[in-house]
Computed example of a mutant assay.
Amino acid sequence: MKVTRHTKILQIINSRDIETQEDLAEELRKGGMNVTQATVSRDIKELKLIKVLSENGKYKYATINHGQKSLPNKLAVIFSQTVIGIENVENFVVIKTISGSGAAAAEAIDSLNFSGVAGSIAGDNTIFVLARDKESARNITQKMKKMISD
């Protein structure tokens, strides 16, 4: 699935320096995704990745930073495409995602700065968001449900 692959690509380039499309394809293969260089090339274009100079003097793939607006927008799209259920339990919001998308959806939650969030913990397909109080948890749940229903 393209959304899962895009999520993984963003995770990879944010966690290590990737210099070439082949390096990125290899990292995706290590993660169990069967991809070709042509697929990775299309993904790079769709995600609008650019090459920037890394600290070690080599070029690496990165997201375009338009005042930190581009990445949160992409993450919001990933959130809406990967979340399959949201439930409010006391001060918690429990979010179910498609397998392998928990970390990316949690990154979206963090980047969107929902009011009343104390913190979040992500697994492979489940995220726990701790709200500061029950009312905040209800409000967060409503906002998140609206994001996935649009």
Rank of each mutant, 00 (worst) to 15 (best):
S115L: 14
S99V: 12
E90M: 11
T36P: 05
T39N: 09
S41P: 02
L10C: 05
Q11G: 09
T63D: 10
A62G: 06
I109D: 01
T126S: 10
Q37A: 09
M33H: 11
Q21K: 09
G123A: 13
V89C: 07
T126P: 02
V40S: 04
V40F: 06
V93C: 01
K51V: 00
M33Y: 14
I9C: 07
K2A: 08
E107G: 08
A106W: 02
T82H: 04
Q21G: 12
K58H: 13
I9W: 08
G85S: 10
L71C: 03
K96P: 01
K145Q: 10
L75R: 01
A106N: 12
L130Q: 09
K60F: 13
K74V: 12
L10D: 01
V35A: 03
A25S: 07
K134W: 08
I121G: 06
G100T: 08
E135G: 00
I127F: 10
S101E: 11
N88A: 12
A104E: 10
K69G: 03
S15W: 02
I127M: 04
R138S: 14
V3T: 14
T20Y: 09
G31P: 05
I12R: 03
D133G: 01
I121N: 11
M33D: 09
A118K: 09
G32V: 00
T126I: 15
I64G: 06
A62E: 15
A131G: 09
N139L: 13
Q37D: 10
I140N: 00
P72W: 09
H6N: 11
Q68L: 13
K8L: 15
T39D: 03
I64L: 15
L130F: 12
V94Q: 08
K96Q: 12
V40L: 02
Y59S: 07
V77F: 14
S15Q: 09
M147N: 01
